[in-house]
Design a protein around this nucleic acid. Structure first.
Length: 556
RNA sequence: GCGCCCAUAGCUCAGUUGGAUAGAGCAGCUGCCUUCUAAGCAGCGGGUCAGGGGUUCGAGUCCCUUUGGGCGCGCCA
């Protein structure tokens, strides 16, 4: 909570020192950062300003540091002391008063704790999952769902105005293959020799879907001409898959603000507009009857086809059109979460955007690496060819939403993730979810026990925290203080996995505190102070887990 | 062959974007329940940060390179 204050304090004091001549003009170019040292003895916050300044000004770091310290005084009341340590770091501790004020602020405005307005209400779109509606979600989609949703919550907590979007590829080649696959399975019911398309979708879900649709439309459908069958089955199959995807995501606790249809991009003329604009920008050429985008001019390794020789635009072209349309909606910033298998498309899309005069820096693409499913350490075989794989919906059912979300978010997005189903359902410490949830359940039970004993605190504001003197209490408090820092850094780094690690640490400080000190049954002022601390802690756990989309049970 | 990602304790992973003595959990060993949830706590051991070079006050983090693994390199999406 004090990150921003400490940083602003340093900036303004250093500014004054430059104005008064205590520091030379060049010092103004040095970034002023309040860091969180990993080593506890180095204080709650630290700045390396003197080290960087010394280099730039060709002076001794310790001298600059001591001048900095005298320039900083008098210190605000939330800072305990400022001292020089190591090669020239200036370290600070937050004072008791600072920490106690923090608790009061958490209790007064619980839902605000952790939030900041770094985003300045800028319009920010997060597009994620966007799975093709021609089959069930796979486990990787589950990971993007957890990541995207949590990232969106995090960015919203950091002060961005966030919109969650799912893009539906509801036209084009794969929809046709999808329709032909269902039709073939349907026809095979009466004629087992009916040919299945070579590039058709092999999964058994197609057979089930054919069965469902056959019931819906009756056997006479099979006697209609192929074109009509394809149109009916394709459309109904699409709606069925789309709804199933929606349901699975809802079971995961993920809701989208916008489901954008590719058909609309097409019908609203964006594809035409994209092609014409690229042509006008002079970045296209024709060859062998196709229209190409000269992606090499934008650092990509090869050109890309925009319009095939059969007159149809490629997926790439529609994607360009979609992104033109996105920016036309006024988003300042767009973040796409793509699977690593799409990594090769980033450069050319950025290239196309800059050709269209849209700053490619406004489109950020986060590549999520793949998920390896395991069961008891053994890899779960997943064959894409046969289409027989564990779907995300099945996984969700087996391990539950909270464990799935938490575990998907324990690792950084650009590492492949091993997801062990056995460990995920284990009710032991191999499973960090339970460790954290247990802390929350203990807190809840503590308050209900207090109530049973007739201790009911209506007004936490009136309770003094002065009786808190134990190191375990201070450690817990200090860790609660770092939460807004973690939120800010996770939002900046697009790295929600910091939150799961933070929660586990916070739970650890609590379990330790809980084992060391009694709360109920101690002298009244101490008891109430500890209850107040616990109340604030519960808020921090709730806020953090809500950014992860993980529920905290009251009882376990 | 080229591009992106990864390699940290026996295992699964962090490491706050270049900071201070590299951290957790699991697994192993030892203690702690007549009192608020033992799904917990306290303690012990465990490392050439894949190898090599470089940049600088300072590198697990940045650059080059080698090795090993994942993903991608269609007028498919």
């Amino acid at each position: 909570m004090y990150v921003q204050q400490v940083e602003n304090f340093l900036k303004s004091k250093i500014g004054e020192m430059i104005k008064s001549g205590a520091l030379p003009q060049e010092a103004g170019e040095i970034p002023v950062i309040a860091d969180k040292p990993k080593e506890k003895s180095h204080g709650d916050y630290s700045t390396n300003f003197a080290l960087i300044a010394a280099k730039k000004l060709k002076r001794k770091p310790l001298e600059v540091a001591s001048e900095l310290i005298s320039g900083l005084r008098p210190l605000p009341d939330y800072i305990e002391d400022a001292r020089i340590e190591g090669a020239g770091f200036v370290n600070f501790n937050i004072s008791r008063k600072g920490l106690f004020d923090l608790i009061d602020r958490i209790i007064d405005n619980p839902e605000d704790y952790g939030r900041c307005n770094e985003g300045n209400e800028e319009k920010f779109q997060v597009e994620f999952v966007s799975a093709n509606p021609v089959g069930p979600l796979h486990v990787g989609h589950g990971r993007w769902a957890a990541l995207g949703d949590s990232l969106a919550s995090l960015l919203s907590a950091a002060g961005y105005n966030v919109s969650r979007e799912f893009y539906l590829n509801d036209r084009g080649t794969q929809m046709e293959i999808f329709a032909r696959s269902i039709d073939a399975r349907s026809m095979q019911r009466e004629d087992p020799a009916y040919p299945f398309p070579e590039d058709g979708y092999q999964g058994s879900y197609i057979i089930e879907l054919a069965e469902i649709l056959r019931k819906k439309f009756g056997n006479e459908l099979g006697r209609k001409p192929l074109e009509e069958r394809l149109s009916i089955l394709g459309e109904a199959g699409y709606e069925y898959m789309r709804d199933q995807i929606k349901t699975t995501l809802e079971n995961m606790g993920v809701r989208f603000d916008v489901w954008k249809s590719e058909r609309d991009i097409y019908n609203d003329g964006w594809v035409k507009k994209a092609v014409e604009s690229l042509k006008a920008a002079g970045v296209t050429y024709e060859e062998e009857g196709a229209l190409w985008f000269d992606a090499e001019r934008f650092g990509d390794r090869r050109p890309s086809v925009l319009i095939r020789s059969n007159g149809e635009p490629t997926y790439f072209t529609v994607d360009i059109a979609y992104h033109m349309e996105k920016f036309s909606r006024g988003f300042d910033h767009v973040l796409n979460l793509w699977g690593a298998d799409h990594g090769g498309h980033v450069k050319r899309l950025h290239g196309a955007l800059s050709a269209l005069g849209i700053d490619p820096g406004r489109l950020e693409v986060l590549l999520g690496q793949m998920v390896n499913l395991k069961r008891g350490g053994e890899p779960v075989r997943m064959s894409k060819r046969s289409g027989e794989m564990v779907t995300f919906s099945e996984l969700l059912e087996e391990v539950g939403k909270d464990a799935a979300r938490f575990l998907f978010l324990t690792k950084s997005a650009n590492s492949t993730l091993d997801f062990d189903i056995e460990a995920a359902v284990a009710k032991n410490l191999e499973n960090p979810v339970y460790y954290v949830q247990y802390a929350h359940a203990r807190l809840c039970s503590l308050f209900s026990m207090a109530e049973k004993e007739g201790i009911k605190i209506e007004n936490f504001g009136g309770i003094s925290l002065e009786p808190l003197r134990e190191p375990g209490e201070m450690d817990l408090l200090r860790h609660m203080e770092t939460f807004p820092f973690v939120v800010r850094e996770s939002a900046r780094g697009r790295a929600p996995h910091h939150l799961t690690h933070y929660l586990a640490e916070l739970a650890s400080y609590f379990h330790s505190f809980y084992n060391h000190y009694r709360i109920l049954g101690t002298e009244e002022s101490l008891r109430d102070a500890r209850l107040k601390l616990c109340r604030a802690l519960k808020t921090v756990i709730s806020n953090c887990s809500s950014f992860l989309g993980v529920n905290m049970p009251e009882k376990m």
